[in-house]
Simulated scan of single mutants.
Amino acid sequence: MAEADETAAFLERYAGGKSALELGIGDGRVAVPLIERGVRVDGIDNSDSMLKLLAKRTDRVRTWTGDIANFKTEQRYARHPRSTASLPPICRGSSRGRRRFSD
């Protein structure tokens, strides 16, 4: 879990203690330590079983089951922690719920 803690510490600086959206949140390996650092975390995952594991770990994450490619929200997030290497590192929400990726 040291790697997850290091990742959470890194992401906390970029979230500025505000909010983050984790795409592919899974069981909350990164989300839980981030929450413990004071960042509000929302997450989406296509696996109900992973979200059930997350719910056993904490009730402090708002989650959605679904495909990240089709996810839309009006909520704006400071940052999103990425769970897979194939996703761009930073995701910013727009007022229409579309996301713009940048480095």
Score class of each variant (00 low, 15 high):
M1W: 11
M1F: 09
M1S: 13
A2G: 01
A2W: 05
A2D: 12
E3M: 07
E3P: 00
D5G: 14
D5S: 11
E6D: 15
T7S: 14
A8W: 01
A9L: 11
A9N: 07
A9R: 12
E12Q: 08
E12C: 04
E12T: 02
A15E: 10
G16P: 03
G16V: 03
K18M: 12
S19I: 01
S19E: 04
S19C: 07
A20P: 09
L21D: 10
L21A: 04
E22N: 10
L23G: 05
G24W: 00
G24D: 01
G26A: 07
D27F: 11
D27G: 13
G28D: 02
R29M: 05
R29S: 02
V30L: 08
A31P: 08
V32I: 09
L34F: 06
E36Q: 06
E36G: 05
E36R: 10
V41M: 12
D42Y: 07
D42V: 04
G43Q: 04
G43P: 03
I44S: 04
I44L: 09
S47R: 08
M50L: 13
M50V: 03
L51N: 01
L51H: 03
L54H: 01
A55K: 03
A55G: 04
A55P: 03
K56C: 03
R57L: 05
R57F: 02
R60V: 00
V61T: 01
R62G: 00
W64Q: 06
T65C: 12
T65K: 14
T65W: 05
G66S: 00
D67R: 00
D67C: 10
D67Q: 05
A69T: 08
N70T: 12
N70L: 02
F71I: 06
T73C: 04
T73Q: 06
T73K: 02
Q75I: 06
Q75E: 11
R76T: 10
R76P: 05
Y77M: 08
Y77P: 06
A78L: 14
A78R: 14
R79W: 10
R79S: 08
R82L: 06
S83C: 09
T84I: 15
T84M: 14
T84Q: 15
T84G: 15
A85N: 10
A85Q: 13
S86A: 15
L87C: 03
P88S: 06
P88M: 09
P89A: 08
P89Y: 01
I90S: 11
C91Y: 09
G93S: 14
S94M: 10
S95Q: 12
S95K: 14
R96K: 15
G97H: 05
R99Q: 00
R99Y: 00
R100N: 08
R100K: 13
R100W: 08
F101I: 10
S102L: 12
S102T: 12
